[in-house]
């Protein structure tokens, strides 16, 4: 039963990844790498773990997700479309003048909770949403997707302090630890050893998983939801560009689409083989 569910989720993730490739190829710009690294996690959240209903996107009890690394818009937009928040055929308008699908995550789009694109701000937004939920006696969860380059922003660490101070158990941050940022590898640009220790010392519950292993993604989110003593951060070890052979671990595809029709076709072919 569980294995069957996971197989279903993997199929959905495939569809989302193909959309990501089509969107950035069609737009001739955009960020595939950090969209593909977070796809499996988005799939589990939107198709299994989050309390959301595309037919009722403003329900005050709904769970919220903030894509703090707002350049991963292709990943989020494709997930929302496949989930049914808006028609999938709108996705090819991405980054075009006559479309609502802004280059960076934009709140005018159904299912999007907050506009993002300048890094470091989403965790604070999540803190505010959790504080409001507490005031309103609502039990919704707030998920915040962070990049591992993004957490170099001081604003993140300020928000981590606030999350701890207010013991926000409804706040669940997920760190997309793909080890690549814009200029190259995170270890070269801003080394951050002992990440889990750092978060723990800031008072957060820390879980660490393989961000492409569905059992681990599911169980970590379920553990985080049950945690009642302060905020949780899930460090998800991921592969930037996951699923497209030549994009994997390659800083070049942080913000660049397939460079040619041939590369585009290779990406689609990579995403069409057998699912392991």
């Amino acid at each position: 039963m569980e294995q069957q569910n996971i197989a279903e989720l993997k199929k959905i993730a495939r569809i989302i990844r193909k959309h990501v490739i089509e969107m950035v190829y069609e737009a001739k710009s955009g960020h595939p790498g950090g969209s593909l690294s977070i796809t499996d996690i988005l799939t589990v959240l939107y198709f299994r773990e989050m309390n959301i209903d595309p037919a009722d996107p403003n329900n005050p009890e709904r769970d919220r997700l903030i894509m703090s690394k707002g350049h991963a818009s292709p990943g989020l937009y494709a997930t929302l479309a496949v989930k049914g928040f808006f028609p999938e055929d709108l996705l090819t308008g991405f980054r075009k003048i006559n479309s609502k699908l802004e280059g960076h995550v934009h709140r005018g789009i159904p299912g999007v909770e907050a506009s993002t694109g300048s890094l470091g701000q989403g965790l604070g937004i999540g803190v505010g949403m959790c504080l409001a939920g507490r005031l309103d006696n609502r039990d919704y969860k707030v998920f915040v997707i962070l990049g591992d380059g993004e957490i170099e922003e001081g604003n993140i660490w300020e928000s981590l302090m606030a999350g701890n101070k207010y013991r926000l158990s409804n706040l669940i941050a997920i760190l997309d630890r793909n080890e690549i940022q814009l200029d190259g590898f995170t270890r070269d640009i801003m080394p951050m050893p002992d990440l889990s220790e750092r978060f723990r010392s800031f008072g957060w519950n820390v879980l660490e998983i393989d961000g492409h292993n569905y059992e681990e993604i599911i169980s970590s989110i379920e553990t985080a939801k049950k945690h009642k003593d302060g905020p949780t951060i899930i460090i998800a070890n991921t592969v930037k560009g996951k699923g497209v052979s030549y994009m994997e671990h390659n800083p070049k595809y942080h913000g660049a689409p397939p460079a040619s029709q041939e590369e585009y076709e290779r990406a689609i072919a990579d995403l069409s083989g057998d699912l392991q």
Partner: peptide
């Protein structure tokens, strides 16, 4: 900055 949009 074009396609990056309003945020940028």
């Amino acid at each position: 900055v074009g396609e990056d949009g309003a945020t940028h």
